[in-house]
Each structure stands twice: as structure tokens, then as C-alpha cells.
């Protein structure tokens, strides 16, 4: 190959690092390596030199994924995870240098990864792990002291809007993903019967420096979802009552106070304002 310009070289090298086999482009790149020592081994040696970079890139990115998705790795086993991670890296290389943001598409990918088809909850577990990692590094937030609401006239309480803590993510799943996640933090796991299990309606957020995963009662989850969309307490409660009625869930008028009290106790709300 003639001397490439910088763009051509970087394009050729990127391809050579991510391709699943040593193809013609890799050979073109290797033809640009200065030979060292005996010419007779030049080709073999060039392959080994390229292999160092191919291994470094793949090893560092698959290791980063394993650090981001430890429960998925435990559930599918090391060998299966490695295979999935390699395929994922080739299909979705990171777009940002800071790898704490890497793997946003891993949930979707692992949900469709053929060797894991018999584990239908895997995509939701991966989403939980992604949300967990994001919460871990999210900006610190103030916590709303419920005493501050005492300044609000009772007739205005329905007009209050909340800001949730920045780390909050809401995730629901038909599978008991919080229980599966928790069991896999332990050395030994108990059997979870998937045919007789509770759906998960999770609030994932950081309390201090620790990430909390809380499974909320369905009405409370719906209420929090509405509040996190910047609706007033009045609007959010009305929507929750409608949804409960449509889905035939029991919900008594008197439960609002207890639900808000519970959300305050979780330290999930950061600030409030009225009529804005």
C-alpha cells in the first residue's frame, strides 16, 4: 500500500481493531509496519504486533462491560458473557471516551442475543444495571425537608409540583428483577419461582453515595411517575386514580397522604414550587 494520509490510516486501523477476523484491510495495515529483524517472519510478526492492539481494545472494552453488568455476567456465565460482550463491542463501539456512559444499548442487545433467548428477564436486568450505574455517578441533589411544605396553605397543596433527585430512574418489569438482582449480590442464591412472582415497579436512586432499588406498590409507582413528569400533586393524584380505576386496582382517596409521606421518607424528592 502507498503511504496513506492520516484519515486513511486511522480508518484502516479502526477497522483492523474491530473486525472479527484478520481480513484484507488488516493486511493492508500490516504492510505499513516497518519490518524488524528477519524478513522471512515479517508477516507472522506483523500479525502478532497487530494482535496486541486488537486484544488491548477488545479486552479493555469487554472488561468495562463486565464491570458495568456484573449480574448479567453471573446469570449467563463467564464464557457466554464474553461472547456477547465481544459481539456487542463490534456492533456498538463506545461513542464516548468516558466508559461510565457505555452500554446504553446492551439491554436491548442482550434481550435479543440468541444464546440467551430462554432468559426473558435478562433485558430488564441489564436495564436495571444500567440505571444503577448512571445513578451511582449522577450529580448530588438536595433532599426536600417535608417541614418546608408546612408554609403552604392547605388549599394550595394540590398546586405543588416537585423536582425529584437527579439520580432517580423509574423502571417497571413483569419479572421480579429487583429480587433477581438482590439474590445475585450474594454468594449463594435462593430459587425464585418465576411462575409465582411479583412484578417490579422500581425507583432506582442514590441516597448519599449508595444506590437504592425500591419496589413500590403499583399506585405509588404511578403517582411518582406522574410527579416526576412535573405534574402538580392534584393532577398526579387524579391521573393515578384514573389509572387505578382502569386497571381495576384498589385505591382509596385517603391513601394520598400516606403515599406522599412514604416518598418523603425515601428521600426521593429534592424541591417543590407552587403554580409554576
Amino acid at each position: 500500500m502507498n503511504k496513506p494520509n492520516l484519515q486513511q490510516f486511522q480508518s484502516l486501523m479502526e477497522h483492523s481493531l474491530l473486525s472479527d477476523n484478520v481480513d484484507n484491510d488488516c493486511h493492508q495495515l500490516m504492510s505499513l509496519f516497518a519490518p524488524k529483524g528477519e524478513l522471512s517472519d515479517a508477516q507472522d510478526e506483523a500479525k502478532l504486533r497487530l494482535a496486541i492492539y486488537r486484544n488491548n481494545v477488545m479486552h479493555s472494552l469487554t472488561t468495562a462491560l463486565a464491570d458495568l453488568y456484573p449480574v448479567i455476567k453471573k446469570l449467563v456465565g463467564e464464557a457466554c458473557f464474553k461472547g456477547a460482550a465481544i459481539e456487542f463491542v463490534r456492533r456498538y463501539p463506545p461513542k464516548r471516551a468516558a466508559l461510565l456512559h457505555y452500554g446504553e444499548k446492551f439491554s436491548e442487545f442482550i434481550g435479543k442475543y440468541p444464546p440467551c433467548e430462554n432468559l426473558p428477564f435478562l433485558a430488564d436486568i441489564a436495564q436495571l444495571e444500567f440505571n444503577y450505574n448512571q445513578a451511582y455517578h449522577q450529580a448530588d441533589s438536595d433532599i426536600l425537608d417535608p417541614q418546608q411544605l408546612a408554609s403552604v396553605a392547605p388549599e394550595q397543596l394540590g398546586e405543588v409540583r416537585f423536582t425529584c433527585v437527579g439520580s432517580l430512574a423509574l423502571l417497571s418489569s413483569p419479572w421480579p428483577i429487583d429480587e433477581i438482582w438482590r439474590q445475585n449480590q450474594q454468594e449463594e442464591q435462593q430459587v425464585i419461582n418465576l411462575d409465582d412472582c411479583q412484578a417490579a415497579n422500581l425507583a432506582i436512586f442514590r441516597e448519599g453515595y449508595n444506590v437504592q432499588i425500591v419496589n413500590l406498590e403499583e399506585n405509588c409507582f404511578y403517582l411518582l411517575q406522574q410527579l416526576s413528569l412535573n405534574k402538580t400533586i392534584g393532577e398526579a393524584w387524579q391521573a393515578t386514580q384514573e389509572d387505578a380505576s382502569n386497571a381495576q386496582r384498589e385505591l382509596d382517596e385517603s391513601e394520598l397522604g400516606a403515599m406522599l409521606g412514604y416518598l418523603f421518607s425515601l428521600e426521593i424528592l429534592s424541591a417543590f414550587k407552587i403554580n409554576a
Binding site: 486511522q10 481493531l17 481494545v57
Partner: peptide
């Protein structure tokens, strides 16, 4: 270098030592 266009490859890759680079 580590990024070519869209992707960041998380390695310290060698430069050609030319006038252009």
C-alpha cells in the same frame, strides 16, 4: 489517538510521525 469519527476505542493508538500528522 483513540477516536476515528464516531467511535472511541479506549486505547492509546500509535500516530504516524509525518508532517501532516
Amino acid at each position: 489517538w483513540s477516536r476515528h469519527g464516531t467511535y472511541s476505542l479506549n486505547d492509546l493508538l500509535p500516530m504516524p510521525y509525518t508532517q501532516e500528522s
